[in-house]
């Protein structure tokens, strides 16, 4: 009973993040590039870029995750995205007919939405994108929101496009409501959620380079492995050298026998 209680105490911490779909594994290729079309956007290209970059910064700052997010430009339109003919994914598009997609009743309260979180047979995301509310006259048109609210909105929707669902923690970025939040700040709940979908493994390829070739996906992983392994290998080596040298030198007089 005591042992079970101890094991229970040691075993776990619970969190409340979710996935957008069942058995989601995230985008297979890294980095995940969001393709942006600036047409129909009520904000300037540079404003949109700054906002996206702020959101990207949030998602790229998770230590336990391998996720790397970037952005590029695309000519994909809302129509082609909704017809599922877009090739470069995920996308970020400004939708002047946003009410058509989400309904007239909510166009004044929803500033953005993520569509089509589709997966392949392995659970990897293959089709997803963010539509920003650019509907003329809508209260939730992104032009009517503060800069911080648009950053938050976009970071939240990018979270969906990356595979995360909602969280039940009001302070979390993935909570359904912006609330009083002013920054696209990732809480531990968001961090744990994204680290689950995109876990970082600095051992990929095996310690000391064994069996490394087949599993290294990119030069980025290669760099991460080299960076990650070099200090530990070096320290083990130094530990061994120190041990050998010092132990030999003081073989007959261990620490217990030597005056301090």
């Amino acid at each position: 009973m005591k042992l079970a209680l101890l094991l229970g105490l040691l075993s776990s911490v619970g969190w409340s993040w979710t996935h957008v779909g069942n058995n989601i594994r995230g985008w297979k290729e890294q980095p995940v590039t969001f393709y942006v079309n600036y047409s129909n956007c009520p904000l300037s290209e540079s404003e949109i870029n700054d906002i996206i970059d702020q959101a990207i910064k949030s998602w790229n700052g998770v230590t336990d995750s391998k996720l790397v997010v970037g952005r590029a430009e695309t000519s994909t339109t809302v129509a082609s995205f909704l017809n599922k003919t877009a090739v470069k994914l995920p996308v970020i598009l400004c939708d002047p007919s946003f009410a058509t997609q989400i309904g007239n009743s909510v166009v004044n309260v929803v500033p953005a939405a993520t569509f089509f979180s589709q997966t392949d047979n392995d659970g990897n995301l293959i089709y997803s994108g963010v539509l920003l509310n650019a509907q003329n006259g809508a209260a939730a048109n992104i032009a009517n929101l503060s800069r911080g609210q648009v950053e938050l909105t976009l970071a939240h929707e990018m979270g969906h496009a990356l595979g995360l669902g909602h969280s039940s923690i009001p302070e979390a970025l993935m909570y359904f409501s912006l609330g009083d939040k002013q920054l696209p700040l990732l809480t531990e709940d968001d961090i744990d959620g994204i680290a689950h979908i995109y876990p970082r493994n600095e051992f990929t390829g095996g310690l000391l380079g064994c069996a490394a070739v087949h599993s290294i996906a990119s030069s980025q992983s290669d760099t991460a492995i080299t960076r990650g392994l070099s200090p530990i290998v070096l320290m083990i080596f130094l530990n061994w050298i120190f041990g050998r040298l010092l132990f030999r030198k003081n073989k007959s007089r261990t620490i217990l026998e030597r005056p301090l």
Partner: peptide
């Protein structure tokens, strides 16, 4: 898991697989 989505509710999912992250 059924959670609020701002206008109504949506169904989300908890993962059915384990994940391991190793960081130096």
């Amino acid at each position: 898991v059924i959670l609020d989505n701002g206008t109504s509710t949506s169904t989300f999912y908890t993962p059915n697989y384990a994940s391991h992250s190793f960081t130096m």
